[in-house]
Design a protein around this nucleic acid. Structure first.
Lengths: 130, 130
DNA sequence: CAGCATCCGTGAAGATACTG
DNA sequence: CAGTATCTTCACGGATGCTG
């Protein structure tokens, strides 16, 4: 449940604006083009170097991988460890917080797998008629 | 787990591009600015009219509410029932598919509630130092 | 290797006005 | 009431080039 309150005469539940609602905030973060994919990649492979994540995902640009990793790091979802070597080495891994996130995410993924066909069919139907 | 395969010598798990991956597809849908909020609003209030949803959410534009509802309808997540009256009345409700979605979503929300403070703190910390 | 800087195109979304 | 139409803005993300 989002943070809601009952404010009008109809007893209708309403919700806080995005700036103060944790769910809207977090979902919009995770819902960007790459965050989720980076998290799942790190989950699947454990600690990874920048170039490995890049190769693993394939169609992400260097810039967007950097941006995404920085954002996840800022949110405390990934650890970033720099080794002062030449050539440089940077390793990324999930934080405990992100590990916890994987469980709800997993059930969401299961829902998606289960309902994927229906959604595709529904879209097709909607497109061809309305 | 996303749809992955082991392709290179490092046994690194890789993932399919967005067009063919149900999870990336669905998450990007749900991760847009308003879909989730509309779904949760409908879950909390049951069947609702257009204007009620509009009032309940508050800061969504008429246009974006229409766009979002159409998208959810196309995906088979909301029912749209039009009553041929004057003035017109249109009622929206969740489909069974969307109802199922609420469970994984709920655990995601719980994670968000639980970790919200840490995330905010982490962001603050990141901003002030790096 | 792991990035940062810069430029730029595109689509998402807001504001406003109008309608059956 | 429940939209549609149009215009505009702006941030996301891609491409490219450079660097410690």
């Amino acid at each position: 449940m989002l943070i809601g309150s009952t404010i009008d005469s109809k007893k209708m539940k309403t919700f806080l604006p995005v700036g103060t609602c944790p769910i809207r905030d977090i979902l919009s973060r995770l819902g960007d083009k790459w965050s989720l994919l980076v998290l799942v990649t790190l989950k699947a492979n454990g600690t990874m170097r920048f170039s490995d994540i890049h190769k693993s995902i394939g169609d992400i640009s260097q810039r967007m991988l950097t941006v995404t990793l920085r954002s996840l790091e800022a949110d405390g979802l990934v650890n970033r460890k720099v080794y002062p070597e030449v050539p440089p080495r940077v390793e990324y891994s999930l934080t405990p917080s992100a590990d916890e996130l994987m469980l709800p995410l997993h059930s969401l993924v299961e829902w998606a797998m289960k309902n994927m066909q229906d959604i595709v069919s529904s879209r097709e139907l909607y497109k061809n008629k309305g």
